[in-house]
Write a protein that binds this DNA or RNA. Structure first.
Length: 284
DNA sequence: ACCCACCCCTGGGCGC
DNA sequence: TGCGCCCAGGGGTGGG
């Protein structure tokens, strides 16, 4: 379940592993991996052959590699996607979807994705910012992220705070794990109505969102179910520092109350019932 | 314009 | 042991 820290670890790996190199051949092993590429798999392969990778960019959970053609190889890891930089003689992974070889004959790039929620697409003229992700908001570690605009936008919404945190058009990069962790840190229940949240509380929430993202990045990300790894195949260690996510029944690290799990938004939400009391209707 | 339910997918884990 | 069900959930889409 790669979120911002995990995707950033992959971006850094791509910067080291493929930027400056010229792609030789691309082969799509599973059509679903490029289903968003409207020209189809053969067009995807043709647009990338002989192109040089000029950078490795990220916005939220999206990655893109600007090319010397002005296009961008754009990707999302979904739930289980991996971008691996591996020796040519390494046996193919069971869920290898796309293979990229390079003109220098060095290590190849592989897109591996068990659940196939992820995907790759070549966006014409997308080197600066691919048009397919123009609707994705800046993420909280982007220097140009506008805190005041975010706070104002959240307070205009009529929804619960966790829905807002997960809405990638408001703020990007946050998924279920880091939403639960940030809400635990601030002591907010996921259903708190956004329109009633004081600006001060939202500012604190942003501070804690940034803190948990940075701490996780320093630990190499969270590898909760081992599907997330870096381009070198290394798992992250932040799972050990989680306070709420995945800790149903375990004592809250602040007050000892057992963490509870609720079904919410077709997924799980983990809260401390004492530190994060459920709001009474119409109040905050 | 905004909100939200639904759906896509696979393999691990668990109950019977 | 084996079968079948549930669960993980990001984001695009379409209905309200």
């Amino acid at each position: 379940m790669p979120e911002l820290p995990e995707v950033e670890v992959v971006r850094v790996g791509l910067e080291r592993g493929v930027v400056g190199r010229t792609i030789d051949r691309v082969s799509v092993c599973h059509p679903r991996a490029v289903r968003r590429h409207l020209g189809g798999a053969r067009d995807f392969e043709a647009l990338l052959a002989d192109r040089t990778v000029t950078g490795a960019q990220r916005r939220g959970k999206y990655l893109w590699l600007p090319l010397d053609s002005g296009d961008a190889l754009t990707g999302h890891l979904g739930m289980s996607g991996q971008l691996l930089v591996v020796p040519l003689d390494k046996p193919d992974e069971a869920h290898l979807r796309v293979r990229f070889t390079f003109a220098d004959g060095g290590r190849e790039l592989r897109f591996v994705d068990q659940r196939t929620f992820g995907g790759l697409v070549v966006v014409a003229g997308g080197a600066e910012l691919p048009s397919t992700i123009a609707h994705i908001a800046r993420d909280p570690v982007d220097p140009e992220f506008d805190d005041e605009a975010f706070v104002a936008a959240v307070r205009r919404r009529k929804t619960g705070i966790k829905r807002a945190l997960l809405d990638q058009s408001l703020v990007s990069g946050i998924g279920n794990i880091y939403a639960d962790e940030a809400l635990w840190r601030v002591g907010l229940h996921y259903a708190r109505p956004t329109e009633l949240l004081p600006r001060r509380v939202l500012a604190d929430l942003l501070t804690q969102v940034r803190a948990v993202l940075h701490e996780s990045l320093a630990a190499g990300g969270t590898s909760f179910d081992a599907l997330y790894v870096s381009t070198e195949g290394v798992s992250g260690l932040f799972e050990r520092q989680l306070h709420a996510y995945g800790r149903e029944g375990e004592p809250c690290d602040r007050c000892g109350t057992p963490i509870r799990r609720d079904a919410f938004m077709n997924r799980s939400s983990f809260t401390c019932p004492k530190c994060q009391p459920r709001p009474r209707s119409g109040r905050w």
